[in-house]
Design a protein around this nucleic acid. Sequence first.
DNA 1: CGCGACGTTGATTTGCCTCAACGATTGTGG
DNA 2: CCACAATCGTTGAGGCAAATCAACGTCGCG
Lengths: 194, 194
Amino acid sequence: MNSEFLLLNISRYISLEPKEQEFFLSMLQFRKIRKRGFLLQEGEICTTSTFITKGCLRGFTIDTNGSEHILSFAPEGWWIADMYSYITQQPGTQSIEAIENTEVLQLSKTNQDTLFETVPKFERFFRIIVEKSLVSHQQRLIESLSMPAEERYETFLKRYPMLVERLSQKYIAAYIGVTPEFFSKMRTSVLRRK
Amino acid sequence: MNSEFLLLNISRYISLEPKEQEFFLSMLQFRKIRKRGFLLQEGEICTTSTFITKGCLRGFTIDTNGSEHILSFAPEGWWIADMYSYITQQPGTQSIEAIENTEVLQLSKTNQDTLFETVPKFERFFRIIVEKSLVSHQQRLIESLSMPAEERYETFLKRYPMLVERLSQKYIAAYIGVTPEFFSKMRTSVLRRK
DNA sequence: CGCGACGTTGATTTGCCTCAACGATTGTGG
DNA sequence: CCACAATCGTTGAGGCAAATCAACGTCGCG
């Protein structure tokens, strides 16, 4: 069941009484998004945090030239939101789109706030989640500043081997920060070498 | 006084009883670092979170070519740590160095853990701090993927106008992700245009 | 005073982008 | 179920932003 998966996930960081679990689940909303469906569009206010139980989403922005840059992939077991918009409740720059048929559980910002008041343990849970996310973004920033594209690609392959098979090349290119054309050339030259 | 500055800072996010304040302060250690002194060296385990009361630090890594990349500047009122190393308690890749004579208050990881148990409100405080840091790192990642160096420089100028005057050019170059030589050329061409 | 860090400038190289053309695959409406 | 369009990946030619390497002036500091 979907909520079981989420509870299992949470239990790695905090332990909940049955009543707390129940209360938590009552704050969530289940939702399906079909491939190419949007969960959030640039310019909207991000009012929910989303936990993925099935499928995969991507969070991305579009720059002034019209190119897309992917901030995160979110497969099963991950959370996603436009953090800037979510915490400030201002219109954001990210869009979130399904790249497969996807099922999610959503926690609205207002429900999160009451959750924090009612079951303060959740402050810890989300602190830990955000810490991990911060570390991975710092890592990626360093890599984008210090590594050539080919190394960033290899790092990506090692870090998310199970994800790679599910992603089209243009998405990987938009994640590591190169054009699809260059990515294609890079890939063939890596393959030829082996 | 140093701790007053920190308490004022904290009061923007959570409110503390006098006893809680006192307890919190008892967990901190005051420390001075002189210019060019290191608070953390690459390969060490980062055991403390550091709040700056005076001066300025920088957190940076050195890549395989020997070039430095600055992850963050930390002037008065900011926190700094090698988050990866701090939360995993594994050796990290960051170094933290004073770029001015600096005074700080340090909270050790173990003290932070007891603080979380004793005054759970601090979970919230640090969650909020980490959230803000995450947002700014996401922002920077997008910028490094989508903007040319000159735009990144202008964004930096607008975002941290008061910091710029205190930093040597090579540090700004290492932050926005270009070589000092290119930064110099870029800067003169920007100036000439005005 | 003299040395080492810093910033500047120029010549050359290179990693990656842009644009354009072309199959192959996917999807969609008739 | 087919036909056509749209999307995707590939390849090539040419261009540009930024790196590299080297030389030089300046300044702060031991």
